[in-house]
Design a protein around this nucleic acid. Structure first.
Lengths: 203, 203
DNA sequence: GTTTACAAACCAAGCGCTTGCTTGGTATTG
DNA sequence: CAATACCAAGCAAGCGCTTGGTTTGTAAAC
């Protein structure tokens, strides 16, 4: 399944919003604003202006501002879990699976869903307790994908460090790329960056 | 020079505030609050209450709230540059120098200055343009320390990936530890964590 | 094929509260 | 007796969100 097919089937299942719908467009703009200015610095007036409506009209679609943040996070993690699953399934050896996961996560972070991924990583403090629990539950599934691959590699002696810790290091390292990696300018392609990450780990 | 001696000499040079002074205590509390709740969610009333004064009285010490954020960042980076320099100087081989840098940065992130380090890494969006430039200038010195060591390692063939990229990966990986690494509970010591990072890189 | 019905989407206005910061005055300290 | 540190009070602006009412899209009823 291509990334686009995956997105379409998730839309069909109502697990993520169609980017062309009113809701979907708002969530995209919200992700961009939340990443650029941070959740707290983004006002409901900013959000409304970004989609060309009045601030009060937002609350016809979402009960609170925080619900918008939660929706951005939940839909992002749903989409990316599906993308990662598909990428891992396509690869053969554990090493190739790891490479596929790294490559796909870099794509998520620096590609189309990049704004939303950055929000997911850096804005969790602004979530209420209950929303946080909800998001964490989804994240556990996502992290499970990584761990099973890393543990397989570790079992084969290709990984010297603890899989849990390696995953956490990779989380930090890969999400941090959003602050410096600009694929358009500068020669490094996503594939090249993936190679560098693998090389750093001696793989 | 011990870490404490370094701190004392920086205080003498007026490059960082004495933690026992009114200013120093405020900056410590500010770092903690900014990390826990984020800069935007922390009000001047929170800051004042944390040191037991009225909110208006803050502005006797700092002209604006943002100046407090800037001061936290500037003083933190000054202190840590000095600590890193000293750690690198103590080590012998390039590999040991790298280990010393990693170990020291982990200590900074997860030890006493941890709150301030987290603020430095995650709250730069809340800085004004001019403050950001000021902080970036100081950061360049700090990053220069890392790059010289990594380039030395690369020259000896002990590092397969590009030093610039490795540093950026390490920045993300190490700063991210603040979200999960709890040295008190759970057996992993700072030294053990440093070993894991080195092992991950095959060093 | 026009009319009617109704919900979804939106606007204009503004409420109540919190925010960063100011002001004028009062202790405290060397 | 000056300078430093602080308090008590509050202002102007901006915040999330509510309200009452209007427009728009859709589809059945006639």
């Amino acid at each position: 399944m291509s990334p686009n097919q995956i997105l379409q089937s998730l839309i069909a299942e109502q697990l993520v919003s169609d980017p062309n719908s009113a809701r979907g467009r708002l969530l995209n703009e919200a992700a961009r604003l939340f990443r650029d200015k941070g959740y707290e610095r983004t006002t409901v007036r900013d959000l409304a202006a970004a989609v060309g409506i009045q601030s009060g009209s937002l609350f016809h679609h979402f009960r609170t501002k925080e619900e918008i943040l939660k929706a951005v996070m939940v839909e992002t993690i749903r989409l990316n879990t599906a993308l990662m699953q598909a990428a891992a399934d396509r690869a053969g050896s554990p090493r190739d699976k790891l490479r596929a996961l790294i490559r796909t996560e870099l794509e998520s972070i620096n590609g189309q869903t990049g704004e939303a991924m950055a929000v997911l990583v850096y804005e969790w403090r602004s979530l209420s307790e209950s929303s946080r629990a909800e998001v964490l539950k989804l994240r556990d599934v996502y992290e499970g994908l990584w761990l099973s691959v890393l543990e397989e590699l570790s079992g084969k002696g290709q990984l010297k460090a603890d899989p849990f810790i390696v995953r956490r290091m990779l989380t930090g390292a890969l999400s941090w790329t959003v602050t410096w990696y600009k694929p358009e300018r500068g020669g490094l392609t996503p594939d090249g960056l993936t190679d560098q990450v693998m090389a750093m780990m001696g793989l």
